[in-house]
Amino acid sequence: MVEFDSVSVRFGDRALFDGVSLSLPAGSFHFVTGPSGAGKTTLLKLCYLEMAPEAGEVQLFGKETERLGRDEVADMRRKIGVVHQDCRFVDHLSVSENVLLPATATGVDIRDVDDNMSQLLAWVGLSRHRDRRPPELSGGEKQRAALARAVILSPDLILADEPTGNVDWEMSLKILDLLVELNKSGKTVICATHDLSLIRQAKTRAPARVLRIRERGIELSGADL
């Protein structure tokens, strides 16, 4: 599903990743963890093609991504749902319009996903807020709305960047449960977080593995944290 082959990323003089290789199979659940500034968000950006590596190769869905045109990148992103730390909504649209945005932007008939959207909003507990605008939502509600938007078209790969960064523990567990449920339905999930307690909780719910970002590299660990 996601493969890195000798990927290197530099920011100025600083090497963030240096020859990183990894392979994340379809249906897997991975947490990406590490200290602030270690490159968790950068790793996700490489996965949804918002940035390209300086050296090495990123393969998604078995395809090389280095020479993809803008339309091909768009096609690739339609198979990926992303939850950003800052959620990235279109603020003047309602919650339901934001959740439907992937369908609107890709020409999917809204009637085909409207029921799905209602179920999704119920699933993330936002049915009552469907007509509100994102700035009127709390941090946790925004994260859940972003999660609903990320999965509205049932993508194969779900990337979540600190989805519990701005919410309390109870809400963190709710969001975690949603991610676990998605993974159980066959989706590949990659979640960046610095919250080790959350990862421990996840391990009690799903066979999650951890990608720990260390000095210029990534280490894959199974159970121990």
Partner: peptide, 16 residues
């Protein structure tokens, strides 16, 4: 620009 960024994030093509 920001809205365009969101649209691209959800898979919108330039033609859209």
């Amino acid at each position: 620009r920001q809205i365009i960024g969101v649209l691209r994030l959800v898979g919108a093509k330039d033609v859209f």
